[in-house]
Structures are given as C-alpha cells and as structure tokens.
C-alpha cells in the first residue's frame, strides 16, 4: 500500500461500488460509495470515504487486506438531521497512511453490522459506541456496556440525553 491517497481512494471506491461510478466528493447520497482525498494538514487524514451502513464490513475487509489497522470507531449524533454518523479511523502501521470511513444510520433505527469479525479490536470500540450512542452492531458477540455499569440502559453521548 505505497500508492498515493488518490489511487487508494479510487481503488477503494472501485472495490466497494464495482457497478456504479464513484460519486462526487461533496455531499454523497446516503446509499452510494464515495472516496476522496482530503488535506492532511487540515483534517488529520489522507483520504476519506463514505459507505452505506450495509457495506462497512466490506470496507473494513478492504482495509484489513491492505494491512491497515483499525484506529478507533466512534459515533456522532446529528440530532438535527435525525441521523447517527459512525466514523471508522484506520492507520497503516508500515506506510503511515490515514483514512477515515463514514457511514450514516437513521437515528431512530441505529443499526449496522459489526466489523469485529474483521478487526477483533473493534469489539471494544463497538461496545463503547453501543453504550454511549445506542448504536446496535448486529452480529456483535458481546454487545454489553464496557465502561458504563453493566445495567446501564441510557446513552449519554446522545444529544437528547438528560441525566
């Protein structure tokens, strides 16, 4: 994985959306795959991608095959749009590229497949995102609170959470 980020982004988009052309970088549709290079000095990643929630496992597998490691994954609650964003951060331990993959799920039905099969390290990150945001990772082997008490049924990082 020594190619420049433009190539990586194009390869990623082609791998995940073999039939359709990669969409334009700005405001991708919710169900389309897109990938584009961003300015590292401003954003801290070399390129970003957007995938529909159903394809996060395929995306993770693509990164795993290229030798990337999962840095972290986190949710962002966009309450105004009624959506939850999940951001997957990847880093490459040998070639040092950084990439982020975003996906959005509806806020009232925040469900997406788990990537812990591909990256076992995602197990804990997903548990954390589950307890903080109420995201449900289908297929996760052990989706219980990690940092909150084991009987916690609240999701403190949701914007409408009131203690």
């Amino acid at each position: 994985m020594t190619e420049p980020p433009e190539h990586q982004a194009a390869e990623f988009a082609a791998a995940l959306a073999p039939d359709g052309a990669p969409a334009a970088p700005e405001r991708p549709g919710p169900d389309s795959v897109s990938a584009h290079v961003v300015e590292f000095k401003r954003r801290g990643v070399h390129w970003e991608a957007h995938v529909p929630p159903a394809q996060v496992v395929a995306a993770a597998r693509w990164f795993a095959e290229k030798g990337f490691a999962l840095d972290t994954l986190t949710g962002v609650d966009w309450i105004a749009q009624g959506e939850m964003e999940v951001v997957y951060d990847f880093f490459h331990p040998h070639t040092f590229w950084r990439a982020a993959v975003r996906t959005r799920v509806p806020r009232d039905h925040p469900e997406l497949p788990t990537v812990s099969e591909v990256f076992p390290g995602a197990n804990w990150h997903e548990r954390e995102a589950h307890e903080f945001f109420g995201l449900r990772f289908t297929g996760h082997p052990h989706l219980t609170p990690l940092l909150l008490p084991e009987d916690a049924d609240f999701h403190p990082l949701r914007k409408d959470y009131a203690p």
């Binding site: 795993a64 030798g67 990337f68 490691a69 999962l70 840095d71 972290t72 331990p93 990256f119 076992p120 390290g121």
Partner: peptide
C-alpha cells in the same frame, strides 16, 4: 505484529 494490527495496539507494544 499481526495481533497488534488486528487490535490496533500501538506504542511500545507495536
């Protein structure tokens, strides 16, 4: 190294 990559371990561990 492979275990570290799969779990995202960094620093002196990696």
């Amino acid at each position: 190294a492979e275990l570290c990559r799969r779990y995202g371990a960094t620093g002196p561990v990696l």
